[in-house]
């Protein structure tokens, strides 16, 4: 018989009939997916952390293996592509389809450049003797005395991130084409944007925890 409280429930944003997040179910679901996928990378990063900290063989200084300025360039490219993506989403929301499509293609260009850089990095590091099972005996990396987990962690972390970048590029390409044809609403661009920013976010963590720390 608590009419006041009952009325309060019916009106509140947790009272059913509306989204408590003031977001469509699509956006809510995308965020939940991002949390799950993010935790997958957390698991991989924790595994890497465990193996690095438990290792009796000292972990190499990353600057001795990688060209850190080059990795910084990759970071710059990815952050820029995130900014172009944000602009595309903003444009789509404002109804400016041409700008949205243009900036989508710029984002795709940035992502492709990132992948190209990553591929170059892999070639360079493989040439220096990095293999999944450890440093190739007699190679540069073996001379540095790196533990086996170093190249393995490198390939797993960057490989999984790279696969997410690749799938992001596929999603972005489809979004760009369909937005150009007027078939994708602004919300679709926003969903693609959330995924792309998530990919950038993961790179921030990998860049710091694998390349810098």
């Amino acid at each position: 018989m608590d009419h006041g409280a009952h009325a309060a429930v019916m009106e509140s944003h947790w009272g059913g009939g509306v989204s408590p997040f003031a977001a469509t179910w699509q956006k809510t679901m995308m965020w939940i997916f991002i949390v799950t996928d993010g935790l997958l990378f957390s698991g991989l990063l924790c595994g890497y952390g465990f193996l690095r900290m438990a290792n009796t063989i000292p972990w190499p200084k990353q600057s001795a293996v990688f060209s850190i300025p080059f990795i910084a360039l990759m970071t710059f490219i990815l952050i820029t592509s995130s900014a172009t993506m944000g602009t595309a989403v903003g444009a789509a929301r404002l109804g400016d389809r041409r700008t949205a499509v243009r900036f989508l293609w710029l984002t795709i260009l940035g992502g492709a450049a990132f992948l190209g850089c990553q591929a170059y990095e892999w070639t360079h590091v493989i040439h220096d003797g990095a293999r999944l099972y450890g440093p190739l005996s007699g190679s540069e990396l073996a001379h540095l005395g790196v533990p086996r987990q170093f190249p393995a962690a490198f390939f797993i972390l960057t490989g999984f991130h790279g696969s997410h970048v690749l799938s992001g590029l596929v999603i972005l390409t489809i979004t760009a084409l369909r937005t150009g044809l007027g078939k994708t609403p602004a919300q679709g661009v926003e969903m693609a944007g959330l995924y792309w920013h998530f990919v950038d976010l993961v790179w921030v963590f990998i860049f710091t925890l694998f390349y810098l720390v």
Binding site: S12, G16, T28
Partner: peptide
């Protein structure tokens, strides 16, 4: 979370 009917807090 998102799709409860009205009144279903």
């Amino acid at each position: 979370l998102n799709l409860r009917t009205k009144g279903m807090s």
